[in-house]
Each structure stands twice: as C-alpha cells, then as structure tokens.
Nucleic acid binder design. Structure first.
Lengths: 149, 149
DNA sequence: TGCAATAATGTTATAAAATAACATTTTAAA
DNA sequence: TTTAAAATGTTATTTTATAACATTATTGCA
C-alpha cells in the first residue's frame, strides 16, 4: 500500500505525461480525498481541507479541480451519492479494471470493485444494439453494506 | 401503444392494489412525464405543467409527488442526468425487465433497454462476493446517441 | 353523520450542488 | 522580457433538494 506522498508523486508524473499539471491546489484536493476514509461531496471536501490544511478554497475552485482530477482519471464522481472518491489504482503499474461502485443507500459507504472485461463487452454490445455508443462503462449500484443490511 | 388515459387508468389500479392513491396532482405529474418526449428535471416538469395544464405546483410538492411515483415504480430517477422519466412498462401485463438507461452526455436523450436476467445475476453475485447486498439493479450508462456520436 | 386521524399538499425558508461571467494571479512559451 | 495561456479567485446566480410548520382533503370508525 503506497503512502499518500508516493501516490501524489505518481499522479504528478502521470499528469505530466499527459501534458497536464498537478498544481499544489490540485494536489491538496486529491490528498484530501486520499486521506478521507469515505467519499466526499465538494462541500465536505472544503470542510475537510479547512480542518486538515487550514485553507478553505472557494467551491468554484474545488469543482474545477475535481473536474480536472476526474478528467485525469485520478478521481471518480459518484452520481448516486453526489460525492467524489479518489481512484484506488493511481500508483498501480498495471492496467486495472473499470471501476464499479457499490454505494450503501443508508450510510453512504462506498466499495469499489473491478468490472470484468466480459461484463463490459456485454454492456457495450447491448448499448450498440440500441444505436448508442458507450462512452464510459463505469457503474454505480444502489446497495446496502453488511452493517446496514 | 396505450393512450395516456389508459396508462393513467392502469397506474391508478396498480396503486390501489398496493394500498396507495394516485391523486389528481400525482396523475398530472405522471401525465406530464408521459407526454414529454424526454426526461425532465423537477423544475422542467414545473415549467412543462405550467404550459400544458396552466398550473404551477411548488417544487416541494413536485419532489414529493416524484418520490411517490418512484416508490410505486411508475417513474425512474436518472441520477446521471438529475432527471425523471416515466416507466415505459406501466400498462404491460407481463413482468418486464429491470431497466437500463442509456443517457447521451451531449444532448440528454435517454433510451431505456431491458437488462437480461443473466446480467442481473452476474451483478448480484459480484456485489454479494464483496459483502454488500444489491438493493436495486437499475443501471445508468454514460453514452452518446447516434446523432451526437 | 360527525369526528379524529391520516394523507396530501401548500408555504416559507433554507441547504446543497453547481455554474456563469468577469477579474486576478501564476505559469509557460516565445 | 513580454505575451499568451492556464489556474485560481470573486461575485453572483441558477439548479436541485429538503426541513419544518401549516392547511386542506380524505379516510375510517363510532
């Protein structure tokens, strides 16, 4: 399990390779999500950063930074929960599976699992049979965690 | 293809069987969604109903009505788009498939397809292997429709 | 039929999430 | 060094959603 510093370094290198820049502000937002044990909304992130880093960035900035991090695949937006979660594979060397998020409707806990290639292909075929093009196979499912079930 | 009146009648009977009541206000919200060619947000619904029925219910009421309709499975909330869409199987006599929504990220068009039982079972097993319980297998996918692709 | 309880809806206010538009600062490139 | 582009800030607003209290309508029971 890589330390947060290592993950940030790795993220920085990945961004540089893509011609993007992981600025200090962006690092701090990503760090906030990595430190946090749970998915956070933009405003929860602002509160969290106020407590952890003694800085309170404007919401507009946080949203922009989250958009950037999402575009760089460092962060995932969970639409079911209106929250963001750090990608759990940032420092992996191998290509990892498309994420599927199991979101507890009761307590908000989120678990990330990988979607098998075969399942993605099935989804993709279903989509194309319907005249649409699959843009992003990331999945979110309404669940209950083992504590709330 | 059932007429809107028939669909509403069917919905009313289904609610009655479930011990719920499809009041006039609720009928009008459902009708609005049935008339509409596309998924609508709560506020879009309010605008739509102002134009179609010359009534402008408060947002709070619309949200409550949408919650009710969703609970009765007459309406689906699309979390990716923050919109609602009428269930397309209200007057079907047979048990229909769990819905999967293909949502065009560009224009907002939504297509509903059915998820095969085998795919649901796969999803369910993946979830349970992770210690969670699948609560609702409804899926939403980021897509592009054939016009926007 | 009348009354009490419950359900549905309205009102007022606010919270939460998100974005538009303009401005300033920082960084990178020429 | 200067300019252009990127990043961030500021101000304001829009959009989505809900809390809490009040009123109205409906239902069930005596």
């Amino acid at each position: 399990m890589a330390s947060i510093t290592q993950i940030i370094d790795h993220a920085e290198n990945t961004c540089r390779k893509n011609g993007a820049k992981l600025t200090e502000k962006r690092k701090r937002v990503l760090t906030g999500l990595l430190i946090s044990k749970k998915a956070l909304s933009a405003y929860e992130l602002i509160d969290f950063m106020q407590k952890e880093f003694n800085e309170s960035p404007p919401a507009m900035s946080v949203y922009r930074i989250l958009d950037f991090l999402e575009t760089e695949n460092l962060v995932h937006k969970l639409h079911l929960a209106n929250k963001y979660i750090a990608c759990s594979h940032i420092s992996c060397a191998h290509e990892h599976e498309v994420p599927q998020f199991l979101i507890c409707d009761k307590c908000g806990n989120v678990k990330e699992i990988g979607i098998k290639k075969s399942l993605i292909n099935t989804l993709k075929q279903n989509v194309e049979k319907s005249g649409y093009v699959l843009k992003s196979p990331q999945l979110e499912l309404h669940c209950l965690c083992h504590e709330c079930a």
